[in-house]
Every structure is written in C-alpha cells, then in structure tokens.
Design a protein around this nucleic acid. Structure first.
Length: 429
RNA sequence: GUGGGCGUAGUGUAGCGGUUAACACGUCAGGUUGUGGCCCUGAAGAUCGAGGGUUCGACUCCCUCCGUCCACCCCA
C-alpha cells in the first residue's frame, strides 16, 4: 500500500458544488444584467499581475500588501501576485489599452476571483469572488451616485432588504494630510489610554483609529475631528452635490437610506473623496457586502495621465450568504426534459442516436446508465427530476416505437413512433 | 499573527472506561414474468482527525500536533 494522502481543498478556499450553482448563476446573471442596464461593459483581467502593480496601486502600507498577498516568483524571475482586488488591474488595463481615447467615462464591470492570504472565517475566504464596477474618466458627483445606484439596483434585484449604505468623504490628498495630523494630535493627547493595537496604529494609519472596535478608543472617537470639516471647497461642493443626488434616489428606491458615517475610512490608499460601504443589519462581523469609492489619484500613480475614477467591489460569497439568510431569492432549477431508458443492445444503440437527434430538436436528454436493469434506470430517471422517461426495450424496437412516460405528473405512458420529431412533439405538449 | 468551540461511514447525528461502534438520509442490489416516486429486504461504506500517554483495557480520560468553524486584526 503506497502512502495515500487524503486531499482536501486548501485552507480558505471552497468548491462551488452543483447544488449551489443555480444560485451562483442567478447572482452573476443579475450582476451582469444590472451593470449592462447602466451601460457598463464587461472586462476580464488576468488572475495574476506584476506584484508592483498592487504595491504601487493599493499602497505599500496597506494590510493587503503587507500581509495578505499571494506573491510568487515565476520561472523567469518575475514577481507576480494573485489579484487581491479588482480596481488596480482594471486601471492598468485602461492605461495599457489607451482607453482614454474612448468616450469618457469608460464604464467597466467584472466578475472575478480575488485572493488574499487571511485567516478564514464566516464570510471571509482566501479565494472569493467579486462583482465590481469602475467608471473611469469622469470627475462629477453624478458618476459617484451612479456607482452607488448600481449597487442599490443589484441588491434590490436580488431581493435583499435591510441593507444600510454608509457613506463619507475623506477629502483630497492635501486636506487628508492635515486631517490626519489633527487626528493624530487628538488621539495623542490620550495616548496612554489607548489600547496597544491602536497606539501602534496611531502613527502608521491614524484614520483607522476611527473605526476601531476598542471601547477606550471609541470613546475618544466621539469628539475626534471629522474629515468632512476639512474638505476643500471643491471637495465640499462635490460631496454636497452627491448627497443631493442620493436624496433624489429615494424616489426610485423607496427603501434606500444612507447614513453619513464619520468613522468610515477605507484601507486602500488610492481612495479620495467619496467612500462607501453597504452592509446588512445582520449580527456578525464579516458582513460588508460592498466597498467602494472614488480613486482619482490611482491612474496617475500607475503611470497614466491624471484621470478620475470611482467604483465598487462586492463580494459574491457574502451576497449569497445574505440571500440565504434572508431567503430572498427563489431559484428555479432548470428542468431536464427527458431521461433515456434503454435495455438491450439494440435499444442501447438506438437510444444514443435517438438522444442525439432529440438534442437537435432542442430537447435535453440524460442517458440512464447502460447495462443496468430497467428498474435501476427508472430509479435513476426519477432521481434526475426529469419530466419524461423515454423507454426503449426490445419490444419497442420491434414495434418501431418508444414509450414516453411522464414522471412529474400523473398520466399514462404513450407509445410514440420511433423518430425524433414525433417524440419531441409528444414531450413538448 | 492572537483567542475560543468542535473533530465518529458521503451527509447529519448517537454512543460508552470493556466483547461484532448505532441510527437516519444518501449509494448499490433485490422485492419473479421489462417501468420510477411510497413501502419492505439486503449489501457496501468509519484505521471513531493524527501521534503519544494513563489503564489489565480507550472512540470514551490527559497531552501534543493537525484540520475545521467562530472571533480579533483587516476586508468583499
């Protein structure tokens, strides 16, 4: 006996099994449909990119780059990284393919796997899938509102309710720096009271203290300076225009409500101005369904001409968990028209060619396992949830007929002339 | 990286310091003469996560490791 390893999927990654596929397909179809309703076009970028794309784009100091990337060296010595997020690759593609020559803004969407080395837990995986939309080349608040509206329409189409939109503006890079300084000073006054985790973050990422879960820090956050008070005139106008547009959304989306959240900052360096998240009012922690915002600096950082952008990513696994929790979506399993039951060599041979002809007629046909008893094949047919069994035995072959038996409703089986058209017709009725 | 819960057939569970580890669902085969669903019978399928220890004896007690789930960090 050789050493035998029992293989299982690596930690944090999962098979999407047949039973789950109908729901997955429904969610992905809804995503595609919704994005197209807004004129977004699909793009697929490679699963891996040069590591430096993410170091530059996402930011060297971010957690993603610091500790969550699946990076490897290929045989040619290049450092590559499995995509941890979708925005930087899409922007890379925008630059590489000269999309600034297309009518602006360029509206793109993707449905793609993302990879992050992280401890798995509920709603968090090392491979997960995101539906994301990016609008590149338009600085107006209208496009921010559009991005948020896509998210709204998507979750509405999926039947999800009780989803809260949190929104904030973190200003532009210049004001953000002075804001960060003031924030640092605010907390520094009480540095001794801060828990260790937050003291460590004080210098590195002061904005992150705002959404700390440490009670001591939260207390201090109550009267911490707010990013909205630091906006430049332009950023303020942008922000107020966006809020007006969002208020207007309440007509078309009566359940829509947003909350301005001063503690909402985001962990990726490229964001400026608008940031937002969608989250359900569920217990639990890893529940954020969407995350997004404006990333005007990014294209420039990646070597393109200064070009504004805004977008979101949403986790499909989390959306599915939420759909299941809310039981918000009825899924119809696509029906199978017929199972071919065939006993005896003559019948078995004829069954294959008949099934092929039936498929030409648009009938889906599942072959029952050859060489098994009729009872076994009928049981198989039953479990397959097919609408009809098409039964071929020696008797039928001799008479030039097929027995067509309904499986999903009461009714007698009929003998039908043994040709594809007649059988297809009897099944279509 | 840190903390907690859990690890018994494909799945969900039961079990007890002591001879063949149980049940349900599922799978496979049957219930006579070629026909599913319900019912009945039978079969296959578990080194009781791994290693070590305590004991006359451990699936059952202890330790270590691994895995998994949940939480922190962070994010989708």
């Amino acid at each position: 006996m050789p050493e035998q390893q029992n293989y299982r999927a690596p930690r944090g990654v999962a098979d999407i099994l047949p039973d789950d596929q109908t729901l997955w397909t429904a969610v992905k179809s809804t995503a595609i449909y919704t994005a197209r309703q807004f004129g977004y076009q699909q793009i697929d970028t490679p699963v891996f990119e040069h590591t430096s794309l993410f170091r530059r784009g996402v930011g060297d100091e971010t957690d993603i780059v610091q500790k969550e990337m699946y990076s490897f060296e290929d045989l040619g010595g290049d450092s590559l990284t499995l995509r941890p997020e979708g925005t930087a690759p899409v922007c890379r593609s925008y630059i590489e393919h000269g999309m600034h020559n297309l009518p602006q803004p360029v509206r793109l969407f993707y449905i793609a796997p993302m990879f992050r080395y992280d401890r798995p837990q509920a709603g968090r995986f090392r491979q997960h899938h995101q539906f994301g939309c990016e609008a590149i080349g338009d600085p107006s608040p209208n496009i921010d509102a559009e991005i948020i509206e896509i998210g709204l329409r998507y979750i509405t189409a999926l039947g999800l309710s009780d989803v809260t939109v949190r929104i904030n503006s973190i200003g532009d890079p210049a004001t953000r720096t002075s804001y960060a300084d003031d924030l640092r000073n605010h907390y520094a006054k009480y540095a001794n009271d801060l828990p260790k985790v937050d003291r460590d973050r004080l210098n590195r990422a002061p904005l992150r203290l705002l959404d700390s879960k440490e009670p001591a820090t939260r207390k201090l956050s109550a009267d911490a300076p707010k990013s909205l008070d630091y906006l430049s005139d332009n950023a303020r106008n942008h922000w107020e225009a966006l809020l007006t547009l969002l208020d207007g959304m309440k007509i078309a989306y009566p359940n829509f409500n947003y909350h301005i959240d001063h503690t909402l900052v985001r962990g990726l360096d490229y964001y400026n101005r608008t940031v937002f998240e969608f989250e359900p009012s569920t217990e639990g922690s890893q529940t954020s369904l969407f995350g997004g915002g404006r990333y005007d600096p990014l294209i420039g950082i990646l070597g393109g001409n200064d070009t504004p952008g805004v977008g979101f990513g949403s986790g499909i696994e989390r959306i599915i968990l939420e759909i299941q929790r809310q039981e918000s979506l009825e899924i119809d399993v696509p029906p199978l028209n017929a199972v071919m039951v065939h006993v005896g060599d003559n019948a078995t041979n004829r069954a294959s060619s008949l099934a092929a002809e039936l498929r030409n007629q648009g009938i889906s046909v599942l072959m029952a396992p050859a060489g098994k008893s009729m009872r076994a094949q009928m049981r198989y047919a039953n479990r397959a949830n097919a609408n009809y069994a098409i039964i071929l035995g020696n008797r039928e072959i001799e008479q030039g007929v097929a027995a067509v038996k309904p499986l999903q409703f009461e009714g007698d089986q009929n003998l039908v002339t043994l040709d594809a058209q007649s059988i297809a017709k009897s099944i279509a009725e």
